[in-house]
Design a protein around this nucleic acid. Sequence first.
DNA 1: CGTGCGCTTGACTTTTTTCAATAAAGGTGG
DNA 2: CCACCTTTATTGAAAAAAGTCAAGCGCACG
Lengths: 229, 229
Amino acid sequence: MKKISHISDVPLFQGLPKQQIAALEGIVIPRKYAKGKVVFSDGEDATGFHVVMSGIVKVYKLSPDGKEQILHIFGPGEPFGEAAVFEGRSFPAYAEALEALATWFFPRQAFVALVVKDPSLALNMLADLSRRLRRFTNLIEDLSLKEVPGRLAAHLLYLSEQQADSDAPILDITKGQLASLLGTIPETLSRILARMTRDGLIEAGEGREVRLLDRESLEELARGERRLG
Amino acid sequence: MKKISHISDVPLFQGLPKQQIAALEGIVIPRKYAKGKVVFSDGEDATGFHVVMSGIVKVYKLSPDGKEQILHIFGPGEPFGEAAVFEGRSFPAYAEALEALATWFFPRQAFVALVVKDPSLALNMLADLSRRLRRFTNLIEDLSLKEVPGRLAAHLLYLSEQQADSDAPILDITKGQLASLLGTIPETLSRILARMTRDGLIEAGEGREVRLLDRESLEELARGERRLG
DNA sequence: CGTGCGCTTGACTTTTTTCAATAAAGGTGG
DNA sequence: CCACCTTTATTGAAAAAAGTCAAGCGCACG
């Protein structure tokens, strides 16, 4: 997995004057979490936010009977928990390390003070939150307007865009986690993967590899213009 | 319905120096939309954002086969379309006037220029987007982790908190729109309302009034700790 | 070498949607 | 003020999608 080792490599801090980067370095606190550790909990007091240096973290909601919905999965360079800094005093969800995780932690008050002083940092934060909002809009659209096969198709196509070997993307998480990300359960995901394979849309490759055989149909599925056999 | 007639009454602009309020007044463009008019469309170029002066607007996504999911319903004093200003060049959803609508329109570039100059405006925007994000988090949680009766119960309780006569809130939108807001369809909503009535949780009053008879049970439903008979 | 976790599959249940028909409500023009 | 027409709401029966429960497999890890 890739790593980020300097604050100036964080997209959120891109384009900031050196002085501001130095100020950020002044307030940051490095933290480490073992795989499976909870970084923060839903409702917990938000004293600051994190930026991933290395590892992966999932941010999720839990229902009383234990079902989880993953809201985000973040990797190196990505901030999380930042919305709580400017509003609620509490985190609106859980965060848990999916693998060994190292973060920079930015304390709320000190960070807000920097934002107030630097318009370009403020603009970066605004763009960041706006992007986050747009992603949520898409997640809501998926959950409400698409069936699980459509969500899965969309996700596979998304993965293939992100990755080099675009016709055979590798799942970056377990299938159980993927189910939670898509708003369903492992059994359902497993069945749909099987149906897609039967219909010749995909082929399960080595390990977590999934070969996309029929992009066209996957795209129609993702748009809700077609159903699975 | 209430109205907002001065920019300084907009919560988003609360606490700004007079000078900034004046600057905002300098760039604002009043607009009017008849009931049913589309204010902007999904994917459309975002040249600025709106604040509602009077009336109601719904922001929603559409699936290819016509089902809609309402993301927000905004009334006087509330901004909409503002996330597009700081990021995407395009609106991520549709907006349509549910009744005669008057807005202030803030052009993108001019507004961003003001944000850059005024840290308190920037902070207000950050808080606004953060609040928005938190709401979406809850919507996602509802859609994914709760069944329709739970979402409805939560919404009824929410309405009763907002309104004066708290035991008999009035729906502010049609039931069809409410269904879309809850991520379902009118038939399903109708049936669940009927079941809740049969079970003595609520009572349909005059017009759009819904009397809450058993708060306790509604709260359990909303938390997913109970199911409907 | 066994234990456990992740994954799959089958049978069954529940929830929600779809389709269709009808009833009630609301606004408009005569 | 009323007749008319569109929109909104309700109800039933049937279908579809997803979830639950339970069993079993395979592979990694201790």
